[in-house]
Each structure stands twice: as C-alpha cells, then as structure tokens.
Simulated assay, not measured.
Amino acid sequence: MAADDPLAGYGSLAEATDPYCLAAGEAARLLAGHPWKRFAVIGDSVASGVGDPVPGYVELAWCDRIRFELAAQQPDLVYLNLGVRELRAAEVRATQLDEALRFGPDLALVVAGGNDALRRSYRPDETDAELAAMVTALQEAGADVITVGIFDASYAPSFPVAVKPQVSERMMTLSRRTAALAARLGTLHVDCTGHPAERDPGSYSADGIHGNLRSHGICAALTVRRLGTHLGR
C-alpha cells in the first residue's frame, strides 16, 4: 500500500479486530467486481461525516470510507458528497437533490430526517414524503439507493435524562418509518438503529451528539456488508 493510503497497516489497527468493524480484506471480498462508478451522498451531518478521531481507527468518515472501499475495487469511481450538517429533510431535498441528479449517480446514499426527529415539531408523514421524493427521483434516474436507520441519538451524552424518552420515541419512529419506506421503495437499507454501540458513551464525539470515528467505522461496515448482500456475497 502507498504511504498515504488511509488503510496502510490496517491489520495492525484496533479497528481490524473490533467485531463490529470490517476485518482486514473483508470489504475487498464483499465488493469485488461491483458495478458502481458514480457514488453520490446527500443528507445532513451524518452524511457530511462529522466525528472526532479515535486512536486505532481509520481516519475516514463513514461515507468517505465506503467510497474508499468502492474505489479500491473500481478505480474509475467518482464520488460526490453534498452532506451539510443541521439540515432537515426538506432542506436536503431543496438544496442537494438537483445537484445529485445532475451528477448522474448509479449508487446514491440518502440520510436525512434526524434533525427533524430531534425536534418536538417532528412531523413523520412530512419527513417520509421528503425522503420518498429523494429516493424515487434518484431511482428514476437509474441509481441504486441506500437508505439508513441511524443511531438512536437519545443515548448521546448531550441529552438530559429528562428528555431522553421523548427523543428516543421520535428517533425510533423515524427508524421504523424509514425501514418501511425502504421496503416499499426497494432501497438497500442499512439499519444502524439499535446497534450496541449507540448505547456506549464512548461512541460519541466531544460535542456529545455526533458519533466518533469508531461509530463511523461501524456504520461503514454495516453498509459494505449490505452492499455485499446485494451483490450476492
């Protein structure tokens, strides 16, 4: 591997022996011969890759890690990540979807709704409609679409104990409804909700709400494994 390869010496890193993360060589086996050449990501801070480094874990945000693993098997891969933190689903669709469509992806990842669900103003039907509009538009343009059930953020250290039950209820509603939407529309759904790491305070960045790069490694592993399943691996 080249000296600037972010996975150089991967087998010696803690991440390579973390049972929730990719084992050395696992991504190559799962993604060998994959067909995708244009990978687009739209969404909020989960998409953009906010997260603190963790010693022993690859310093790549999860979507960047997915891109790296895809490109290792398809050198012609082109990547576009439009994610911007703090956006609600309607804002993601209004500001990112058209550019993603112009890019012409054959694989697209959509992750939005978390900033809606964190608020008491959350309207599940409206958020569903925004997600469905983005997924459908990308599918009609010829892309395989990845949807995501994100960590239940109520476990993050920043939330006072008194509000955790209400936040959890909304986050779980978002997760269930996104999974149902994925089943209805035929997306490649990655369900991170309920993963043991979401309950671990050590999974979060110093801001107390965003996952750190161990969490990113876990979500990247779940996504690569879902792609591998889609490819019949």
Results as ranks from 00 to 15, higher is better:
46 V>Y: 14
47 A>N: 04
47 A>V: 05
49 G>Y: 00
49 G>C: 01
49 G>S: 03
50 V>E: 08
50 V>A: 09
51 G>Y: 02
51 G>E: 06
51 G>S: 05
51 G>R: 02
52 D>V: 00
52 D>P: 01
52 D>N: 01
53 P>L: 01
54 V>A: 00
54 V>C: 02
54 V>K: 03
55 P>T: 05
55 P>C: 06
55 P>M: 07
56 G>I: 04
56 G>C: 01
57 Y>D: 01
57 Y>N: 04
58 V>G: 01
58 V>W: 00
59 E>Y: 08
59 E>Q: 14
59 E>D: 15
60 L>S: 06
60 L>A: 03
61 A>E: 08
61 A>K: 07
62 W>S: 02
63 C>Q: 13
63 C>G: 11
63 C>M: 15
63 C>W: 08
64 D>N: 11
64 D>E: 14
64 D>P: 00
65 R>C: 05
65 R>S: 13
67 R>P: 12
67 R>G: 12
67 R>S: 14
68 F>S: 01
68 F>M: 04
68 F>T: 08
69 E>N: 11
70 L>D: 08
71 A>N: 10
72 A>Y: 10
72 A>P: 08
72 A>I: 06
75 P>E: 10
75 P>R: 10
75 P>A: 12
76 D>R: 13
76 D>A: 15
76 D>C: 09
77 L>K: 10
78 V>L: 12
78 V>Q: 15
79 Y>A: 13
79 Y>C: 13
79 Y>R: 06
79 Y>Q: 09
80 L>E: 06
80 L>F: 07
80 L>H: 05
81 N>L: 07
82 L>R: 04
82 L>T: 00
82 L>S: 06
82 L>W: 07
83 G>E: 00
83 G>A: 09
84 V>A: 05
84 V>G: 06
84 V>S: 03
86 E>D: 14
86 E>T: 15
